[in-house]
Amino acid sequence: MILFGLFLLVLSSLLGVYMYALFYKSRYRISDSLSFTVTLAAGQITSFVIAITLYLVFPIDFTVICTVNLWIGIVIGTQFSSVTRKQSLLAGFFNGGVAAVMGTMVGAVTIDPTLCGLPESTLTLQNTGIAVGIFGLLLLCATTLLVRFSLIKH
């Protein structure tokens, strides 16, 4: 489980770096509103998936993991939003942090569904964790493809 989680973490970080490189390379020839949209989409989905995977790897204490994830999400959102202009820095900061907190919450509910008053899952812990991790990775791949399409087409 830990090995699988670390593998997912490396893969999602590589996808995020690829998106950042693509965005950085075409920063002079895109308009303001497209850069705002790409900032929101890429920053939110990358911090969301990394937060889910980090909670699945280290399910010890919600508060500590949530703090760490919050700062990681803030750094990712700020990095994405400081590519083009400083005006969307505020949106990147806030939305990266909120997406990281929501990803941690999704991970916590996956591990223990009785937190939100839901019934116990019929699957075992390993199966649920692997399914949610693969779902997050697919989501990140789809978003990367969409961002690449919109940046190259433009």
């Binding site: 919600f62 508060t63 919050l70 907190v101 919450m105 916590a108 939100c116």
Partner: peptide, 14 residues
């Protein structure tokens, strides 16, 4: 989010 954080005050302060 508040229910998943198991009602800890440091989380609210953060």
């Amino acid at each position: 989010i508040g229910a998943a954080a198991s009602y800890s005050i440091p989380f609210a302060i953060m």
